[in-house]
């Protein structure tokens, strides 16, 4: 398997990381996601776009079973990660979420120090053997999130004291520190100013070298800038999925075109 992946990477053909087929999601009586099938490639940025309430965030939360924390939410259909069904009763959502990390819409650093925020994941998953390994993971993660230079002298200060953009990058560092295989981002820039947004977008572009990134976004420009694949959701349906360039220049479905040209939103 590993060898095969190496070969595929060189030819710029990405293996499918996540495959969803026939997924339906219900909130109580509300049918939020209707029969969605999609595959997400490794080492690729996939963007979910669509008007508000179209179900893109809900679908994203299915991918690491975050919907489990909502009692009235019910998911049917099949979602696999590396060909293993993530809704299999034998799967522990805790283990799944270690592999499929998530960054949220609003920066939500824990009320702890910057260091402890990043070290939280490695600690609970036992990724570091000793303190120096943990230090190393923290530093690497912060570097990867392009935050190291700004915070390296104040790792002991609370994470809540950072600016909005820094907080969001701290959350990304926190997610990266767990060494996930997939990173889900739920509108990661919606609470940020344009400069911070640019920094995060740059970061996403770099992250795709190691991870499969799925990003939900409201901004079509952002989707166009950072993603290779785009999925367009509308009223709980997956309307169209394909290469980002194609979706934005030559959509097949009229609804996609209406959305992109600003007629539905």
């Amino acid at each position: 398997m590993n060898d095969m992946r190496l070969i595929q990477r060189t030819v710029d053909m990405h293996e499918t990381k996540i495959r969803a087929s026939g997924v339906d999601v219900f909130y109580g009586d509300n049918h939020a996601i209707k029969d969605v099938s999609v595959y997400i490639e490794d080492k690729t940025v996939t963007a979910f776009i669509g008007p508000s309430g179209c179900g893109k965030s809900t679908f994203l939360r299915c991918l690491n079973r975050m919907n489990d924390t909502i009692p009235i939410c019910r998911v049917t259909g099949k979602i696999t990660l590396d060909d293993e069904d993530i809704y299999d009763p034998k799967v522990d959502p805790v283990q799944l979420r270690a592999k499929v990390g998530m960054v949220f819409q609003k920066p939500n650093p824990f009320p702890k120090s910057i260091y402890d925020n990043v070290a939280y994941g490695p600690r609970i998953h036992g990724l570091a053997g000793d303190k120096s390994e943990l230090d190393e993971i923290v530093e690497k993660s912060l570097r990867r999130a392009a935050l190291w230079g700004e915070v390296k002298d104040r790792l002991a200060e609370p994470g809540t004291g950072l600016s909005g953009g820094q907080q969001q990058r701290l959350c990304i560092a926190r997610a990266v520190a767990t060494a996930p295989e997939v990173l889900l981002m739920d509108e990661p820039c919606s609470a940020l100013d344009p400069i911070a947004t640019a920094q995060v977008e740059e970061l996403i572009d770099e992250l795709k070298q190691n991870y499969s990134v799925v990003i939900v976004t409201h901004s079509m420009q952002q989707a166009a800038r950072v993603s290779q694949k785009t999925a367009f959701f509308h009223l709980g349906n997956l309307v169209e999925y394909g290469e980002t360039g194609k979706i934005f220049t030559n959509p097949e479905d009229s609804r996609t075109e209406s959305y992109i040209t600003g007629r539905i939103g």
Binding site: L96, M102, F104, P111, Y120, I124
Partner: peptide, 24 residues
């Protein structure tokens, strides 16, 4: 959002409670 953040990192509920909610 703090709970979500912790669950999203693969923490169990008790880890979330002990290490995030109680300190907060």
């Amino acid at each position: 959002s703090l709970r979500d953040g912790s669950y999203g990192l693969g923490a169990t509920q008790s880890e979330t409670i002990r290490q995030v909610i109680i300190p907060a």
